[in-house]
């Protein structure tokens, strides 16, 4: 579905992504782990078109994605829930959801599904997004992403700064999205939980993929256990 080959990305003179290859297949949940500053956000932003790569290719459903302007990638099925939610703070929850809906015929059904799956959002639909709690904001950001009818939904640290119980809810929502037919590629710090809901994992360090395995092997990998799970 998504295939990245030989990707190099730089900010000015500083290269942060080195010759990166990555693949996501239809129907999967794939996670990318890695320490702060590894380049995870940069990879996602490059896939969305917010950052232009120096070289390499990104194809999505057989199409050369680098030829598609960033604002059209959502319509091709690629949607990101960005790091730090990035809601429109002075718009209501409902306005935030509506603005993403570009397929009028599916709007009502999708919104209903979102309100059913995340009842907190239904309660707060007339509230300004900037005044929501962190957890509610994350739900709203995910909801906004779903409203854009993605075939591939990417999430950048959706659990950042959330209480453990909310984190669990977020992971449950990801599983529900999968059964809705949405492919998921997400970046996380919660290594164990993330791998448990994923089929495969990538480990990104210093702008390179240093490990790529199916989730079970990754959970049992000595290096991952030592460095990321703190198990000797």
């Amino acid at each position: 579905m998504l295939e990245i080959n030989g990707l190099n990305v730089a900010y000015g003179d500083t290269q942060v992504i080195w010759d990166l290859n990555l693949k996501v297949e239809q129907g999967e949940i794939v996670t990318m782990l890695g320490p702060n500053g590894a380049g995870k956000t940069t990879i996602l932003r490059t896939i969305c078109g917010l950052v232009q790569p120096r070289s390499g290719s990104i194809t999505f459903q057989g199409q050369d994605l680098l030829k598609v302007p960033a604002y059209n990638r959502a319509k091709h099925g690629i949607v990101m829930v960005p790091e730090g939610r990035r809601l429109f703070p002075k718009m209501t929850v409902e306005e935030n959801l509506e603005i993403a809906a570009w397929k009028p015929d599916q709007k009502a059904e999708t919104m209903e599904w979102i309100y059913e799956t995340m009842p907190k959002l239904a309660e707060r639909r007339k509230q300004l997004a900037g005044t929501l709690s962190g957890g509610e904001q994350q739900m709203c950001a995910i909801g906004r992403g779903i409203m854009a009818q993605p075939s591939l939904l990417m999430l950048d640290e959706p659990s950042l700064g959330l209480a453990p119980i909310i984190v669990e809810q977020v992971f449950e929502i990801l599983l529900k999205l999968k059964s809705r037919g949405i492919t998921i590629f997400f970046v996380e710090q919660f290594v164990e939980q993330s791998l448990k809901i994923s089929s495969r994992g990538y480990l990104c360090e210093g702008g390179q993929i240093v490990l790529h395995e199916d989730s079970v092997s990754m959970l049992n990998n000595d290096y991952v256990r030592q460095v990321y799970l703190g198990i000797a």
Binding site: C48, G49, L50, A70, Y71, N72, A74, K75, V79, M80, P82, R86, L87, F88, P89, K90, M91, I99, A100, W102, R144, A148
Partner: peptide, 11 residues
Amino acid sequence: QDTDAATLMGI
């Protein structure tokens, strides 16, 4: 309010 988020939402 947010140009990046707007771009991501297809604007």
